[in-house]
Design a protein around this nucleic acid. Structure first.
Lengths: 142, 142
DNA sequence: CTTGACCTTCCAGTGTCGGGAGGGCCCATC
DNA sequence: GATGGGCCCTCCCGACACTGGAAGGTCAAG
């Protein structure tokens, strides 16, 4: 099948599928006109990738998982280790977001939110004020 | 003071400070040799930015917050609205991560993690298997 | 005068695509 | 045979918020 049907069946945008081919995650055949031709095995891979990505695995982890998936002799311990490391990352991220949430909701609760200029939120962000969560100043990344 | 001291005092890398100047968040003076010269007001801004960023506000939100901070006649409602929208984003993100966490930890628990090839994690990622969390296949972004 | 720390600008890369330009292919219809 | 519309191709740029590095200017100490 052509890319549009592969996209519809896998749930991935055609652009993403082309990108995945670009970085070597899938290798569909090519017809004589240069069109990509996807077999069932390619579809399976795409579905696998979509689900792994939706669980937050990076592309490189997906590449590893895909290799393990296709290796019938793999040890399940290898997969489990990868997944557990990813779970740790997820937990860390959740904790980080919860810390932001706690700090910010304190500030929001303290703010009247009317047409007066007094604003505990801005005051809380001002230098030398109040207690902080203490994290390094690089929240949303990592 | 020069950029290095401003970086040390604000907790931001010098590169980041240059970037912030580039996009117009701070406007330090320049000495006759072309070096940036930071006044206390610039330092305050940098600290403000660092804390707002650490709470997960985007650069554009920081720009808005900074404008509100410097506007002595702003209504605190404007700030509160911005912060509340951001809180919603944080909650959504947490929920998304928790869904990933739930799905993945189920799979991990079911996996023996030994040297045999049977792996419920990979099976759970395979097409046409088991129940999913159902989210769109774009986890870590957004 | 040399050394080394500091400063400058500019360019390129990160990760994961999405948007769009410019052009080719294919099928159906007139 | 010509035309239209849909599908496909490659290639390049932009997004986010920086980070690294190269090439070169400036300053203070020895």
């Amino acid at each position: 099948m052509n890319i549009k049907e592969a996209a519809a069946r896998s749930g991935l945008p055609a652009k993403t599928i082309r990108y995945y081919e670009d970085i070597g995650l899938v290798r569909p055949l090519r017809g004589p006109n240069g069109y990509r031709r996807f077999r069932d095995a390619d579809l399976h891979k795409l579905g696998f990738l979509g689900r792994a990505r939706s669980l937050g695995f990076t592309i490189e982890e997906c590449r590893t998982l895909l290799a393990l998936w296709e290796d019938r002799a793999r040890a399940s311990a290898d997969v489990k280790q990868l997944a557990e490391r990813h779970l740790v990352r997820i937990s860390d991220k959740i904790a980080e977001l919860q810390a932001m949430q706690a700090t910010l909701s304190h500030l929001v609760q303290a703010c009247a939110g009317d047409d007066r200029p007094d604003c505990p939120i801005l005051e809380g962000l001002a230098p030398g004020c109040c207690h902080r969560t203490g994290g390094p100043p690089h929240g949303p990344s990592a």
